[in-house]
Write a protein that binds this DNA or RNA. Structure first.
Lengths: 222, 222
DNA sequence: TTGCCCAACAGGATTTTTCCTGTTTACAGA
DNA sequence: TCTGTAAACAGGAAAAATCCTGTTGGGCAA
């Protein structure tokens, strides 16, 4: 079996040990795979990569400190829409992160606990510009992605975001209601809406999501 | 330069992609390194490994779902104290986790963002039974480890820390009680103790403090 | 032994959170 | 003008969290 075309890959991951290992793994999958560039985060990649044409695709970790995978994918979608992005996730099972990846323009994603063979098939499909998602999306969330094109509604409106910030505090809902000049019942409505949208089961769960996804800034909290 | 003695290594990590890559990386470091066994978590390792004498050392990821690195190291410290454990951490910067590793009996730890050369030197030192910690421990911290038996009025004890971790989730206190095999009333006692100690007014407040002060690691939360 | 301390645990009250099913009002579009 | 929709709001109940005051039982020092 001949594997004709060389696939030139860039790997972006902040964990050097993983990155180096991954590169060796990729090279062992096929002689036609060449990792020609590596970076430790999105910013590092954008600042040092100058020849985008040489790249067939890019493999990028979602969880990175400086400029994470979502942000890099978004930046690439604007400047180099033809460069396919394959995302790697550590805990990629939650639908929100999948949504966000799709919105950021990634062509596919893989959990880090997959077998090398799956990586190979993902590289094959994504490098040729085909989508590769190994998890089905619920209709509701899929709808959220698709109908987003008219830029009508982002994740939250202003009031919801304000509520979310106040949630990340020791305030009770009643106190939040006072601060926002709303009825506690309205606040309860916001709560229910966000719980459903993000599949949170409790206020603590919502707060954790808000922090993890950087919807709120930890340093700006009281 | 000759590298005489073969070092037989077991690798335990739940992320298959990382594990396979790491193994290739290890083999590329030296011909005398042989990865002779791999497992996806602590439980998997203990149940399938039958010949401990063949192993020179074990490399284990700290963050694993079923039986994590701390727990595996503790179990090994009891049954096979001569087997050196090298721990790998994703975000090993917080002191609490270093404390916990030392208490669990690991011989050394590495952050996953190190260079392969550092891995090599860690393998060399740890496999020969010497400690390898790449980060200086603050005097206070070191004191905490050493004088742990006497003046143990530090921030938390082990159970409190475990409770705190579980607090940073969507689990109810009842579910936390089940996980820790304690009465919900005892859990309520932990809660009250931590609330008072850190002047938290609610669980959300406690969770925020835990994250801000890095008592728990955001990325290793479920 | 005896007294002391502490972790584990209980009962019970109160507040807060969570959930469910509604109603009213404003306002944009057919 | 009629209609649909979204935001604001309510009542009420169940579950969970919070708070307070205890008890018990085992280890340990005097």
């Amino acid at each position: 079996m001949m594997e004709a075309k060389t696939i030139n890959i860039a790997v972006v991951d902040d964990h050097q040990l993983f990155r180096k290992g991954l590169i060796k793994l990729i090279h062992s999958l096929s002689d036609s795979y060449k990792v020609v560039f590596e970076a430790s985060n999105g910013e590092d990649f954008l600042s040092r990569m100058d020849n985008f044409d040489q790249l067939t695709m890019i493999i990028v970790d979602i969880d990175m400190p400086v400029m994470n995978g979502y942000e890099l994918a978004e930046a690439l979608m604007k400047k180099h829409p033809d460069l396919p992005v394959l995302a790697l996730t550590m805990h990629g099972d939650n639908e929100m992160s999948i949504i966000r990846m799709i919105k950021s323009g990634v062509k596919g994603y893989l959990s880090k606990d997959i077998e090398p063979d799956e990586l190979k098939s993902a590289i094959e499909t994504v490098s040729s510009g085909v989508f590769h998602f190994n998890q089905a999306l619920s209709g509701k969330l899929l709808n959220m992605v698709i109908t987003d094109n008219e830029s009508k509604k982002e994740l939250f409106n202003d009031r919801e975001l304000e509520f979310l910030r106040l949630c990340c505090s020791e305030l009770t809902y009643k106190e939040i209601a006072d601060k926002m000049f709303l009825s506690p019942k309205t606040i309860d409505g916001y709560r229910a809406a966000l719980f459903e949208r993000f599949e949170a089961k409790s206020r603590v769960g919502l707060v954790l999501l808000a922090i993890k996804n950087r919807w709120v800034n930890l340093n700006e909290l009281p």
